[in-house]
Design a protein around this nucleic acid. Structure first.
Length: 627
DNA sequence: CGACTTTGACCCGCGC
DNA sequence: GCGCGGGTCAAAGTCG
């Protein structure tokens, strides 16, 4: 049957009017497409609107009613009755197949028995859509068919049509809004990509200068700051988040190799880590061999990407003149300190223990695990109890997963990924200190407890997320002379909450999917994910949240303005905006960032805050032991 | 029987 | 060059 009004509603992509078109769609029971609707009590209730309720005629028995239409005539002879039935059937058949002409047929066949046939003709002519609603017939069927009721039916139809038109208009309006939002997103994305490409070109142009800065490290004047600077180079040079694992230092070192493009090499390395990244695999293999020769087993993630078999690929093309500092440039790590009696925190991933060693200075053995959720996943972790407090379990993550993560693994993985990304995302100049602090606050806050410590003195750049500390733990941290301490303003979020909040959704699968891109592009996808509704809970904001977001935007703007590496800064800014929006939605936190420079040249960035949150400052260890 | 753990050996970087 | 310590391998053992 022709259900013009219902057609547009059923095709409503938004689905906002599923219930409203009932009146118009549910009448014809012979339409199988609406069977579900007709079986739905609500739909039936909707279908039984005034038009039908007045006639106590369910749609399923409209044909009998129509048959009785002939009885509308006073005391018809039996023969007429029979003939009328035939005519009615013919009428419906005609109507069914030629609904546009239904009214005409009705007029022709009923003209002899309906003194009001002219009115019906007029009515049907005005409301073609109602020819399927049986309202015309029902008016005849009840045997009364007064003109008043006829007019009332017409008025109802007019009301329904008006309502339908209104819904159509609203539907169209919503479609336009959706289209506008989509268009805005696409435009923003295009701008973002364009800007990224332009900035990348600038970075390439300035690479030579950067290499000079890297070489300056050999002078031993600025060990740690240069180290992070190098890491940033690896990240911004097309390296994906896998830069968090092990290759950042090597990427830097390669950038120092004459004739090598450090950025390209970094990309190649990352491509190697990605399973099945054939386009870059060959070159990468060469690079890998080269690196394996240089630093041997330090290059464990690369080994992982090619399987952990005992047969190592012979390493050739080893440049003997590679600087020794490349050995010190290793993997960015994220260490999580949490109180747990369990031998290992449950973070949602599957791990296989491949070694255990007695570490110096700690009576507790250190266990080595690798991720077994996917073949070749480069992620490893070390688990060791704290020597001072054996209730504290120190889990150090290294690398990034090369496979999708289950939801319950998102929290920890995303936390560590974002922490490591923060570590690698920018240089450690004072301006960058601000940026990184903002970045860290924005990205880690929802999942972290009270403090994140960036260790600049360790051979591996390490971010320590201390989930055992109370909210003012600055004094409790390890010697600050060589570490960046960032107390988190919102200690109320444990990982259990984090799993349901922003961060996992931001950094989990998105990071994996974006692993071939830089952190900036990852942030772009974060935005995309938000726009695509992956985290709708982060979108609504009240006034206070918007104010806080404005503060975050201001901080991000300052970071952008201050950071010479604009790409990293914009990544940090976007990430902080996103994270800040969510953070503010949770705790209405207003963070103040202070940056100081220690005597040894390191930067200590502190984030003080007024947390208007739940007041639960204790991180629940059970959040790590959900399994 | 496959997956996982244990554990001694090995490799490598680094400091002396 | 040597020893130490961190990290990894891989055979053997264990478990379901």
């Amino acid at each position: 049957m022709a259900k013009g009004s219902g057609l547009s509603i059923d095709s409503d992509p938004i689905g906002l009017f599923l219930h409203q078109p009932i009146v118009l769609n549910s009448f014809p029971e012979d339409d199988n497409r609406n069977n579900n609707h007709s079986r739905n009590p609500k739909w039936k209730l909707g279908a039984m609107d005034a038009t039908q309720l007045d006639r106590s005629a369910p749609s399923t028995i409209q044909f009998p009613l129509n048959l009785n239409c002939s009885h509308h005539q006073d005391s018809p002879p039996p023969s007429d009755d029979k003939r009328t039935v035939v005519n009615e059937m013919d009428f419906f058949a005609e109507k069914y197949h030629h609904n546009k002409a239904a009214s005409t047929v009705a007029d022709e066949k009923d003209s002899d028995c309906r003194p009001t046939a002219l009115e019906f003709k007029v009515n049907t002519g005005l409301n073609l859509l109602t020819t399927n609603t049986s309202s015309d017939q029902s008016m005849v069927d009840d045997g009364i068919s007064p003109a008043v009721e006829d007019k009332r039916a017409k008025s109802e139809l007019a009301v329904f049509q008006a309502e339908l038109q209104r819904m159509k208009a609203e539907n169209q309006h919503l479609k336009e809004m959706l289209s506008q939002v989509t268009g805005s997103y696409n435009a923003l994305q295009m701008h973002f990509v364009t800007f990224m490409q332009a900035q990348k070109a600038k970075n390439i142009e300035g690479k030579g200068m950067v290499d000079e800065r890297v070489k300056g490290k050999d002078n031993g004047t600025l060990g740690v700051p240069r180290q992070f600077m190098d890491l940033r180079l690896a990240t911004t040079g097309g390296a994906d988040e896998n830069s968090l694992s092990s290759s950042e230092g090597r990427s830097r070192d390669r950038s120092r190799t004459p004739g090598d493009n450090g950025e390209i090499r970094a990309s190649k390395e990352f491509g190697m880590r990605k399973d099945g990244n054939s386009g870059e695999g060959v070159v990468f293999d060469q690079d890998k061999k080269e690196f394996d020769r240089k630093i041997g087993r330090e290059d464990s993630p690369d080994q992982t990407s090619q399987g952990w078999g005992p047969n190592k690929i012979p390493r050739f093309n080893c440049p003997k003149d590679i600087d020794q500092t490349e050995a010190t440039m290793r993997k960015a790590r994220v260490s999580v300190r949490a109180r747990s009696e369990a031998p290992m925190i449950t973070d949602g991933c599957q791990w296989r223990k491949y070694g255990q060693k007695m570490a110096k200075g700690n009576p507790c053995p250190r266990a080595y695990y690798r991720c077994t959720m996917a073949a070749g996943c480069p992620v490893r972790k070390q688990v060791q109890r704290c020597a001072e407090d054996r209730t504290i379990l120190i889990t150090t993550y290294e690398g990034n997963h090369s496979h999708p993560l289950p939801p319950n693994a998102m929290a920890m993985a995303s936390t560590t990924s974002s922490a490591a990304r923060m570590l690698l995302s920018g240089s450690m100049s004072s301006a960058d200190g601000l940026m990184n602090s903002n970045f860290l606050t924005g990205t880690l806050l929802p999942c972290s407890s009270s403090m994140a410590t960036i260790s600049a003195s360790a051979p591996f750049p390490t971010v320590t997320l201390d989930l055992t500390q109370s909210p003012n733990p600055l004094q409790l941290q390890r010697p600050p002379s060589d570490q960046f301490q960032i107390p988190f303003p919102n200690p109320t979020q444990n990982l259990a909450n984090a799993q349901t909040t922003l961060l996992p959704q931001i950094f989990g699968q998105a990071l994996y999917n974006q692993s071939k891109f830089s952190g900036l592009q990852m942030s772009q996808d974060i935005n995309r994910s938000q726009l695509m509704g992956h985290q709708p809970q982060a979108l609504p904001m009240n006034q206070g949240q918007q104010n806080a977001l404005s503060d975050t935007v201001s901080a991000a703007t300052a970071a952008i303005a201050a950071d010479p590496n604009f790409t990293a800064a914009i990544a940090a800014a976007i990430t902080s905006i996103i994270g800040g929006a969510h953070t503010n939605s949770i705790s209405n936190t207003n963070a103040n960032l202070t940056t100081t420079t220690s005597s040894n040249g390191n930067i200590t960035t502190t984030s003080n805050s007024n947390s208007n949150s739940n007041g639960n400052n204790k991180i629940s260890n059970s959040s790590f032991q959900g399994n």
